[in-house]
Design a protein around this nucleic acid. Sequence first.
DNA 1: AACTACGACAACCGCGCTCCG
DNA 2: GCGGAGCGCGGTTGTCGTAGT
Length: 319
Amino acid sequence: MGRPPCSDDNGVKKGPWTTEEDEKLMNYIQKHGHGSWRALPKLAGLNRCGKSCRLRWTNYLKPDIKRGKFSQEEEQTILQLHSILGNKWSAIAKHLPGRTDNEIKNFWNTHLRKKLIKMGIDPMTHRPRTDFFSALPQLIALANFRQFLEQQPLDDQTAWLQSEAVQAAKLQYMQSLLHSAASIVASPTTTSSSLNPLTTDLEQISFLSPPQMLSPRVLEGIGGTELAGQAPQNQMPSITYDHSIGNINVKSDEQRHGEGENISQKRMLLSENSLPPLADMPASNTCDISTSNCNCIISPLPSWSEILLDEELMSDCLM
DNA sequence: AACTACGACAACCGCGCTCCG
DNA sequence: GCGGAGCGCGGTTGTCGTAGT
């Protein structure tokens, strides 16, 4: 493949464009169109490579380009589209007339990304951060628990514990798979109606965190004592997550429906001893990014335990 | 006033895709 | 089907302005 890179062109100017160069480029394109970008610099009398000319034109000189600060609406649209499309800047730019992919990319990197990180939200997944280091204490606890099991005689009780630990490990593994899947799912084939900022709720971010799928005994064993005993298996409580203080609030069904505002919610601190969220999946949860307030209500999904604990499916996944 | 750190954004670079001979 | 040319895209770097010390 023999195409020389732009930088190899002899004596070609690099760096910021002068007004004189801008004028030359604009005049030429307005008269002749850009045609072949490779041939353009010579024809226009510019000592630049074609690629540089194309970039300058598409990102700066094109007449329909909107410049200046991004509006609140544009910001929300970018957030919404990024949660669906990921770093597909050109695809995002198509939904923001007058904005270029480069401009959106820069705005994301300098403003929005930092804003999300500050709020404790992973800018790539648009979910509360569950990076390696935050999960490290759980992994260490899990390793210790395994060591503990290996030192015990394999009677019925420890065998049962071991199988529960295996389930826990499987769920952890599924979490990583689902994280990967979530980023892949962000495909450009999404229907245009779902992307329309006028018809969608721009403030919505979804995530699911079902630590209650592990039995209390397992949670206790792997160090999750804060979580142990919060909810019986297969009875999914609703969980609200407060980004600002890093807390998860858990309410049972009766609490949710019967007792209104004065319920004494069982509160789980996202401490070193708690499990990280185990899965991500779109749900009917809302999260207001612009105000840093998040109160994501996690819907119970009983089918999850059936799916995740299915031996055949899991053995396929783990092979 | 001089220096440093940081943020914003323009521009560059390399890769991959598409088109065409 | 293959290979080269051209283009578009996303990640990264460079440059400039400004706030802080």
